[in-house]
Nucleic acid binder design. Structure first.
Length: 334
DNA sequence: TAATTATGACGAC
DNA sequence: TCGTCCTAATTAC
């Protein structure tokens, strides 16, 4: 899935293109007809992300809660106001094929960001008529002939303003809530570094980890302990900390625990700015370009099982942990 | 055309 | 620990 960084980026797109506008809501697929009817015609007032969950606020104390799950995605189309960091270093969506799916093509206009995620060639502000698929990463689509476009595939919800449409497909959660219900969901989640930047959040995370017998590799994936980390960031954070994934939380040195929190905050910010799960540090410009272009060059251990560790040469191991694939270096993370 | 895979999360045992 | 749900893209045959 889209880990925490993507959800924050999608929320930005809603802030930029939907908040303040009256929204038409529908369910082309039909499975969310009732919820859509409840939202239809209301003005969107707010867009929030906490961990992997997004909450869109509407007039009349209605909130749409969306969780993309493993493969959910939002497709935006129309005259889209682009954030400077969006739709640039990413692939371009190609022509739509018979089934209505997007065929990826190389993007000749790809822009490479510097390490700070700056220097985009795209201006902020000016809307651009295009398509943009936002999931774990973003792909820009082929030119848009009609607006709004014909819904393609299983579109659970379509949100529509005068100029932009947003189609949701494949979510694991999509429901209308009242404010108290939103509060309940958020209260259950662990801290998100972008929502809770203070020391208190770090302390809360540390306290939570340090009292549990559960392996740290599972705790990082537990959204009640820390919000927004998924399988890629889990593996990479543990490697960067040279931390054995099996160590029970309460036996992990407190310095490591606090390092994990600060490193997560750092990687999350990089992810939000670049749109990529860029988890390698201190790359020279050449290596950085390669890493941005190729996901295979972007990680220390994720999806590198059987390949030599970039630090020590030991073969990267793969095992199941928490019903997910865990990649780690048995030597560096001994 | 079918099988496989995916960056989740939940509930039943 | 297992099964289940959500969907699309890719790979295998």
């Amino acid at each position: 899935m889209p880990e925490g960084h993507s959800v924050h980026r999608i929320t930005r797109q809603f802030e930029r293109n939907f908040v303040g506008h009256v929204v038409r809501a529908s369910s082309p697929q039909g499975r969310f007809a009732q919820g859509a009817a409840e939202l239809d015609g209301r003005r969107m007032t707010d867009a929030r992300a906490v961990g992997k969950q997004m909450f869109l606020g509407f007039e009349g104390d209605r909130w749409l809660r969306v969780h993309l799950g493993m493969y959910g995605a939002w497709d935006f189309a129309g005259d889209i106001r682009m954030d400077a960091t969006i739709a640039s270093a990413n692939g371009r969506m190609g022509q739509t094929n018979q089934q209505g799916t997007f065929l990826e093509q190389p993007n000749p206009d790809a822009v490479v960001f510097d390490a700070a995620g700056e220097n985009s060639l795209h201006s902020i502000g000016a809307p651009r008529r295009t398509r943009l698929r936002m999931s774990e990463s973003e792909k820009e689509g082929n030119e848009l002939a009609d607006f709004p476009p014909e819904p393609v595939g299983q579109v659970r919800v379509r949100l529509l303003t005068e100029t932009v449409s947003a189609d949701l497909r494949g979510p694991t959660a999509c429901e209308v809530l009242d404010p108290a219900q939103v509060e309940r969901v958020v209260a259950k989640l662990g801290p998100d570094p972008l929502i809770d930047p203070g020391q208190a959040a770090e302390d809360r995370f540390a306290a939570s980890v340090l009292k549990k017998p559960t392996p740290i590799g599972l705790l990082l994936m537990d959204q009640n302990v820390v919000a927004g980390i998924g399988n890629v960031y889990r593996a990479e954070l543990l490697f960067r900390a040279r931390q054995n994934p099996h160590t029970p939380g309460r036996l992990v040195p407190e310095a490591h625990v606090r390092h994990l929190w600060r490193d997560w905050a750092k990687l999350l910010r990089i992810g939000v700015e670049t749109g990529q799960m860029m988890t390698m540090d201190d790359l020279d410009p050449e290596a950085y370009r390669a890493a941005m272009a190729n996901r295979a060059d972007r990680h220390w251990v994720y999806k590198r099982e059987g390949l030599p560790c970039r630090v020590c040469g030991t073969n990267i191991a793969l095992e199941e942990m928490g019903a997910r694939k865990l990649y780690w270096c048995p030597y560096c993370q001994a």
